[in-house]
Computed example of a mutant assay.
Amino acid sequence: MRNEAESRRAAVRRLGRGLPLERVLDVTRPKAWADLDEDVRRAVVHGELRPSHEWLTGAPGPGWRRLWRAAPAPAPEAPAEARLALALCDPDGRIREAALPYAAGRPELLPLVVVRAADWAGPVRARALDLLRSELPAAPDGTLAVTAPVILRLAARLRGGEAVALLEGLLRALPGAAVTRLLLGCPDVPTRRAALAVVLDRGLYDGLGLALVAAGDHDPVVQERAASAAVAAGTSDATVPVLLGARSGRVRAAGVTALRGAGRHAEAEPYLFDRSGRTRACARWVVRQGGGDPAGAYRSACAGADVPDRAPLGLGECGSRAVDAALLRELTGHPNGRVRASAVAGLRLLDAVDPRRTRELLDDPEPAVVREAARALRPWNGRTGPR
């Protein structure tokens, strides 16, 4: 916390020395813009920063008191970026309002205009919103990718809703290519979620496009919504492999579900042994829908010569304690450590843990086995009894 506070104070000092914004803060972090606004205001109020607004007021010192709310006459020359940023963050609303017109055509300052669009002072807010309406539609992709996250972050503020509504309207009016570039290229998660909502509402992607979004994004919400929409859009020979090959278990689970819709139930069987519990559950459902027996498939795999790593775990998830506990106990001595760990987890799920044997596994050379054994023994922690 101390390092963060010092970093924020240093940003204000750099801005006061006239450095451009990209050298003052991380412009890709939405929170950094609101922090800068707050920190500049505090520094001015406490006398730590004394910015000169003579370029704006036409007079040094208290000349700002003569400002009025009409649009100011054009400055002799465009103010430097740092000077304008300081004026946009000034504690006095008249300074903030008078500075806003000078931000027109200055995309690097648009995030600060967004902050002003949630300003407590009505005239400042109104002028900032007018400026956003004129500037955002023509903003290049890079500017929109930096500005949209600031708008969405300020949505929680009391007066941030108008800017959010403006952004939503803009995303619905922009060319589809611009929206998809925001979805695929913006690092900010809430912005990608908002862009995906527009993509879905406008039907900009087919099933394959949505599958590629789901497989390529790291955000669980984007993955979930895009994968579900891809399945709802109808499966194809191209869509299903993309979903099944995704790194995310929730996306692979959607792909397995799509196999059922395509009548390809047997192709779900390999996913009975997937590393994702959600994918395994979907695979069991699809296999059953096709008339198969997931528990039987797990038993056969566990009794074979080459046991898949997660076969014992899958058996624990859908098997029977009376039928399967003995087989799983036998697998706790398997040469493969991942199989041993899976067997311990399966016994825990079947409520068939043998505390004495499981305590012996706390000395297993495989860390995964030790972790599963410790987890299985939690109900016995603190109890007395044979060891």
Rank of each mutant, 00 (worst) to 15 (best):
R193V: 01
V164K: 13
V114H: 02
G185W: 13
V146D: 01
R116W: 05
A178F: 02
G185C: 10
V115E: 15
R157I: 00
E162I: 00
T180S: 01
P190M: 03
R193M: 00
A145R: 15
D206T: 07
A197C: 02
A148N: 06
L171N: 05
R181A: 15
L171M: 13
E135V: 00
R193Y: 00
P149I: 09
L158P: 03
G185F: 14
V179I: 10
A139M: 03
G176W: 02
V179N: 08
T143S: 15
D119Q: 08
V146K: 04
V146Q: 04
R159W: 11
V164W: 12
A126R: 15
W120S: 12
P190I: 02
L131R: 10
L129D: 10
D119P: 06
L136N: 04
L174A: 15
T180G: 00
G142Q: 10
V179K: 11
A177N: 00
V199H: 06
G207P: 06
R157P: 00
A145G: 06
R153Q: 15
D130V: 07
A117G: 12
R133F: 04
L204P: 02
V199A: 13
A165S: 14
V199E: 09
R181T: 14
D206M: 08
L131A: 09
D201I: 00
D206R: 12
P123R: 04
V114K: 01
A177F: 05
L170E: 11
L152Y: 11
L152D: 05
E135Q: 10
L208K: 13
L112Y: 06
L158Y: 11
V179Y: 07
R192A: 06
L131N: 05
G203I: 02
A121I: 09
E135D: 01
L183E: 12
A195V: 06
P111T: 01
R116P: 01
G122A: 14
D119N: 10
L144F: 06
L182G: 08
T143M: 07
L204N: 06
T143V: 14
L170H: 11
V199G: 07
A197S: 14
L171V: 03
L182Q: 13
G142V: 08
A195S: 08
P111C: 03
A197Q: 15
L166C: 04
L166T: 01
G176T: 05
V199F: 05
E135W: 02
A163Y: 11
A138W: 10
R133I: 01
A117K: 10
V124K: 03
R153I: 00
V124E: 03
L200N: 07
L183S: 10
G142S: 11
V189G: 01
A156N: 01
A139P: 02
A173M: 02
A117C: 07
A148I: 11
L132Y: 10
D141R: 14
R125D: 02
L184G: 06
L112E: 09
L204C: 05
L129P: 02
